[in-house]
């Protein structure tokens, strides 16, 4: 037997189709939490590259050229997993709700953010972005035991503008081994 409700459905469909107007009108429904294009936040991003480290599709890449560091998302490769957003220490990257990404030119399919690099004082190789270093310093200072705060600040001032290699070299000369913190009564 044909159900009355089925006929009702059909008649309703006959006069009120459920179709959206999309290409000629706005998209009907963008759900909350849609995993769209990942976007850097200019204010928050510090260019640390954590997102690039954890990107499962290797879509985010860090390029250091001269004075500038470019963090770019080559989104034709992105799988919109959101790990970058999860991992980002500073809330500097987030998946937006933008999904109309189709393009005929793959070269332009990129989102990027640029930073100025800080150079090592000794060997003038790139260390990291200025924002990154500042953030590191702030964070260290915030979380450190007040007992050794001044000593750490003193050490940091020495190392602030050095690259990893140079720091190693210097740590022997300057005697900045953490051993000395214990003598000041700092315990783990």
């Amino acid at each position: 037997m044909v159900k009355i409700t089925a006929i009702k459905e059909v008649l309703k469909a006959l006069f009120k189709p459920a179709t959206t107007k999309y290409p000629h009108g706005p998209p009907s429904h963008v759900p909350e939490g849609l995993r769209g294009l990942p976007q850097f936040k200019d204010d928050n991003c510090i260019g640390c590259g954590a997102c690039a480290e954890c990107c499962s599709a290797n879509a985010i890449s860090i390029t250091d050229t001269g004075d500038t560091r470019t963090l770019s998302i080559f989104y034709p490769r992105c799988i919109f997993c959101g790990r970058c957003e999860d991992i980002c220490p500073e809330d500097g990257i987030a998946l937006s709700e933008e999904f109309e990404l189709a393009t005929s030119d793959k070269k332009e399919a990129e989102v990027s953010i640029k930073f100025t690099l800080v150079k090592c004082q000794e060997c003038s190789s790139a260390i990291s972005t200025k924002e990154h270093l500042t953030k590191i310093k702030e964070r260290i200072m915030k979380n450190i035991d007040p007992v050794i705060a001044d000593a750490v600040a003193e050490d940091l001032a020495k190392y602030e503008n050095l690259c990893v290699e140079c720091r190693r070299k210097l740590s022997y000369q300057l005697n900045t081994h953490t051993q000395k913190y214990y003598t000041r009564g700092w315990e783990k």
């Binding site: 059909v10 309703k12 469909a13 006959l14 006069f15 189709p17 459920a18 179709t19």
Partner: peptide
């Protein structure tokens, strides 16, 4: 046939 399937056609 589109309308019977609730499409626009």
């Amino acid at each position: 046939s589109a309308r019977l399937q609730a499409r626009k056609g």
